[in-house]
Design a binder for these strands. Structure first.
Lengths: 280, 280, 280, 280
DNA sequence: GATGAATGAGACTTCATTCAT
DNA sequence: CATGAATGAAGTCTCATTCAT
């Protein structure tokens, strides 16, 4: 049996990527009684495919194995995303995920420590993909106003396109952050911090108002987008088109954050912007 | 023997208060398999203390019993709010709630149909209280700008003060609306619609921009407040004060929605406003 | 609180009527775990209305009370018969019986020790009524052939008329005799023994074959009647009329048990016999 | 993953073996509230070991698994028969059955849908075995008089030998037919219909009286046998031997149903007949 | 005597996890 | 590595019985 990642009591801080540092006061034991997590404080290492394979795939056989491992890990993540979205974490059954991924129940435990571990992994990977995507789009843009537009458009069109992901973020973000609470270096923080980075950039360029606190504004902006997509996951008939909605939200936030003289960017007169960034 | 409330298959629409009208496509059965909700469409009547007692408390004995029933129902709701907040719906045990409410496990089932029913009731009652509170505060105010300020302040101070409630809303709003999806006549819609009502009022008075769509803006505004309070329930050290945070969010939204010449209301120069509505 | 009848450990044999003598080997404890009957052997005294009231109702008030007690006891028995028939003993709820009898749940425990006690009482009273009825009918008849006809007709018409009773006997006879097993002096034995008494009488008169063993024949005869009525309680469309069925069964048994030369009694040519005893 | 059997709403009639067709008016919901059988009419498919395994055991491994599945299914059936006999269906605990079968509680649910499903399966399998056995014995016999003797002897000796089976039939036949009422194509009907088939055969041969209605006579005959065996399951000391009892019952029924001149078959003078068929 | 709200023991069932093959 | 049958702990809910009023 390979060295499966495991729960460990507080140890020296390992390589930050892929680790959560649970705080002592989080009473995780109350929340996850059945997972027998009794330590007051511990480091949780979630599963990544790299944990299971040597980095140097120096022989064909090893490379082959590496690909297979990546593949199966990924297949399970995909399946879990789908199942969690459909049923929610607590109503999802390991066997549902196994069936969806077309593997045996037991196989899942070769790649993940437990059900909760799958959730964390799904989360990190999916949000990671969001980060990558929006980062790439933003790399080609310099105008902080357009950057905010790109962020909003990218987020909402992704949520619109990938309902499973949207639901997982909607529900599990709350469930899991309740469990995980303040964990550092995670992908989700990274994703939200893109907003504050854009705002800071705009402030430096004298475009966004200096009295706006990026740390608060990022929450307001993400919250607005999130609530919009929450309603999308629920309702079936929309009273508004996606473009209309994005435009309204952006309009409010830009009008709210721009220095008055900078408001010349009329988004509605620039529908190309939406189309451009929406092409994801 | 009083009539205990129960799940009923599709019936004629009863008095709206206390009833949800579940939509056909909601796939509740997938999510709550164990609750055996198999009807495509049905009316769910959640438990209220009045269900257990004759309305005409015409004798001292009856009045006495009436008070006791109200009292125990309320005690269980309180306990459930606390337990759900601490553990989340799925990790909460009926026995936890019973212990917290200092009643026997079985007693809970005299007042509620099942665990899910408790959740719905907690939700409706708590949100109902929010609606009542903010409605009362708003009744004394005419200025749509100040009204928005009152709403935000009222919401966030309540969330700050009552962490249990905040967590229940955070987590269970997602869980339960996922279950119930878009249900009509519920308190939560009522609560959010207060925002759009304020915006419409402001638009009529020529204060808010006419091109703002209240149906979208209400989501953005509530989402922003909600994400703020989400972070509060999680983080332990706050980088910003409550007043500062409220002020920032309001500032962005007012600047974003007001017609330029109306922006004379400087909220930061009117700290009294915050204090006034925050006194809850 | 009045002297409610209670379970007692083996004591001196009381007045036989109304007492079951449980045998040691009956493992009642296994069957009635929840009734906490742990004694290997005990005397069970079931509830009768006389247990609750002084025999000498010498004052008007006492007589009044006596009547009320009889009345409520009887009302509960009636209700229980109905509910047991409809749902079976184990699926019947005390609250069902209480509702049917229009008394409070707790009231039942003023008249009966426990749920099982109600079953026994129902049984004894209903079978007792059968015994009384058939005894009265038989008292007027001397011909052992006709007596058997009267018994069969009386039994089957009663079962046909009172479906509740039929079901209780069908199902609970098995459940309860399983519990009670071989108890002495009970009404049911009395009822079946009427058959063997008739047969013996016929043998003495040289009408029934002497080689028939009444102890076996009574079982065969009762079993035949019982299976017939079992099917009646189940099936909805009958292929045969009641009279036809009775006639067939009687015909087989009389032909089977009579001494050849005695078979002149043609029951089908004497339909009056059936009508006469059927008038119950 | 194999398909586990499940409750299904009204569907097209499948292969009759192993299916009950529940009638609309059977009020199963009243009796089995907890099994949530709310459909007015449905097909119940009970569990058989074949449901869990591919029919083509084409590899050694599969054959192995097939045998194990058969084995465990059978072990649970055996255990359930024993426990139901000892305690009755309602007093039997799943954990009792599991302990008796030496499996974990949960394992039972890999083979059966629920407790009721176990009962049905026990029933069908045990009665099925009776049918097979008596059919085999009857295949070698042509004389309808002897055939009836074989049936009676086979039944009663089986009941005598296998007390568990006898009790399960005694009690559960009533409980379950009350639940299922008149269901078609079930093994029990098949078993009883053997009697009417024999009678019809005898009538065709001019041995049994033509005026006997096989549909009624089969009930009377089975009822007689059943009541005999009921007493056997209860009483501890027998006043009569098995052979004597069988002989008496057969004597009455043959005398009752045979055309007078055919009564030459003296069963008592042919004790070999009993011994022969009793060799089961 | 009558009531019915409260109790709490205990059953059925589910499902994450393990481990022999 | 993969499988999936087996495990057994634990939760929701029921309901007979009690007891304060």
């Amino acid at each position: 049996m390979t060295d499966r990642p495991e729960l460990r009591a507080k140890s020296t801080r390992p390589d930050p990527s892929g680790y959560y540092d649970f705080k002592q006061q989080l009473t995780i034991d109350n929340l996850f009684g059945r997972y027998n997590i009794n330590e007051d404080s511990f480091i949780y290492k979630f599963s990544s495919p790299l944990d299971r394979i040597s980095y140097q795939a120096d022989s064909v056989k090893r490379l082959d194995q590496f690909m297979k491992t990546i593949d199966k890990h990924s297949k399970i993540i995909q399946a879990a995303t789908k199942v969690f979205a459909k049923k929610g974490f607590f109503n999802a059954r390991i066997s549902d995920i196994a069936k969806e991924a077309k593997v045996a129940d037991g196989t899942i435990y070769l790649y993940f420590n437990n059900k909760f571990d799958i959730l964390i992994s799904v989360f990190e990977e999916e949000i990671g993909a969001l980060v990558d995507q929006v980062s790439k789009l933003l790399a080609e843009e310099k105008d902080p106003r357009k950057m905010l537009a790109i962020y909003a458009t990218s987020h909402l069109s992704m949520m619109k396109k990938n309902k499973n992901l949207a639901e997982v973020i909607q529900i599990e973000l709350r469930q899991s952050t309740k469990l995980i609470k303040e964990y550092r270096n995670n992908k989700f923080s990274e994703y939200i911090d893109i907003i504050s980075t854009i705002i800071k950039l705009g402030q430096e360029q004298g475009i966004y108002r200096a009295d706006i606190k990026p740390g608060i504004a990022k929450r307001a902006f993400f919250g607005a987008l999130d609530e919009i997509s929450r309603v999308w996951t629920l309702s079936l008939k929309n009273n508004y088109t996606v473009e209309e909605t994005i435009s309204q939200v952006l309009d409010i936030f830009l009008a709210g954050m721009l220095i008055p003289e900078q408001k010349s960017l009329n988004l509605l007169e620039n529908p190309g912007l939406l189309r451009q960034s929406g092409k994801i």
